[in-house]
């Protein structure tokens, strides 16, 4: 909008300044936690009175956190893997298939992500009790698979839509049966979407609280549930230290996801 820049500079700078303020508002709660995790005192005081690593040491030494992180991985990896397989299958059928009601199926698959988790949580709780699974790994693992599947479905669908089905048609004329077409053409083409979907699914499972509150037991307690319990009972900077560690891990994973996407997009730019 060059016209705005020329004639209405005040409005333009106003919008820019406003944007800057909102962006700061967006990152402040995350930024506040960082210095707090290095505080030398046990109360939440800002700025921290002194620097220490004691909360990181406490975090590293905590058996609770260690068990919770292990649980989160034990639940997140299989849940994300299962969600990746099922979400990819669903995306293939919905995007490339010729089924009636494909849109409806797509909406149904996305629904668990959009509807409030509390509804699913109180729905799954009695089902898992009936199945005798409550508090076990399979219970929370299956619950997370249902809510993570939409994430994979979305990323793989968008990968599939990013190129014309001509590639698959070409493979077929060249003699590839459906399985070989998938293995040698479709899968390599959607690989970034599948990887990103897996990372999103794992991240989501790693952060999910409400299903974990209902479906896990103290033995299968995940990180968000542990943080939650700690927040409700004691407010020491050890939470801040744990938070920072988890944040760095999450961001690292998402950075990998972002780089995967950018890499493939740059590679595909010249393709018809």
């Amino acid at each position: 909008m060059r016209a705005t820049a020329g004639t209405w500079p005040v409005a333009r700078w106003g919008v820019l300044g406003f944007t800057a303020i909102v962006l700061v508002y967006l990152v402040i709660p995350t930024l506040v936690i960082m210095p707090l995790s290095f505080s030398s005192e046990s109360f939440l005081r800002f700025p921290p009175p002194g620097f220490s690593m004691r909360w990181y040491e406490a975090f590293a030494g905590s058996a609770d956190y260690r068990a919770a992180i292990l649980n989160s991985i034990k639940i997140g990896v299989p849940a994300a893997s299962l969600a990746t397989v099922l979400g990819t299958l669903a995306a293939l059928a919905v995007v490339r298939g010729k089924l009636p009601g494909r849109r409806l199926v797509g909406a149904l698959i996305i629904a668990p992500l959009v509807l409030p988790q509390i509804i699913l949580a109180i729905g799954l709780f009695p089902v898992m009790i009936r199945l005798g699974l409550i508090g076990t790994y399979p219970a929370i693992l299956l619950g997370h698979t249902v809510v993570c599947m939409p994430l994979v479905f979305i990323t793989v669908s968008s990968s599939l839509r990013s190129y014309a089905p001509t590639f698959e048609l070409a493979a077929m004329t060249l003699g590839a049966n459906p399985w070989n077409t998938f293995r040698f053409v479709t899968l390599p083409m959607i690989k970034p979407g599948v990887i990103v979907g897996f990372i999103f699914a794992f991240t989501f499972s790693f952060d999910e609280l409400i299903l974990a509150m209902f479906l896990t037991s103290p033995a299968t307690r995940t990180v968000p549930r542990l943080l939650w319990e700690q927040l409700n009972f004691q407010m020491t900077p050890v939470i801040a230290a744990a938070t920072v560690v988890l944040l760095v891990l999450t961001m690292g994973l998402l950075l990998v996801a972002a780089l995967t996407e950018r890499h493939t997009r740059a590679g595909r730019r010249t393709e018809g």
Partner: peptide, 24 residues
């Protein structure tokens, strides 16, 4: 700046707000 909070756990961000907004 938009995506980092988007992917940060809600528990963590709410904790940040407690630090900012509590009585002291």
């Amino acid at each position: 700046m938009v995506l980092i909070p988007f992917w940060t756990s809600t528990v963590i961000r709410t904790y940040g707000w407690i630090v900012i907004l509590q009585r002291r």
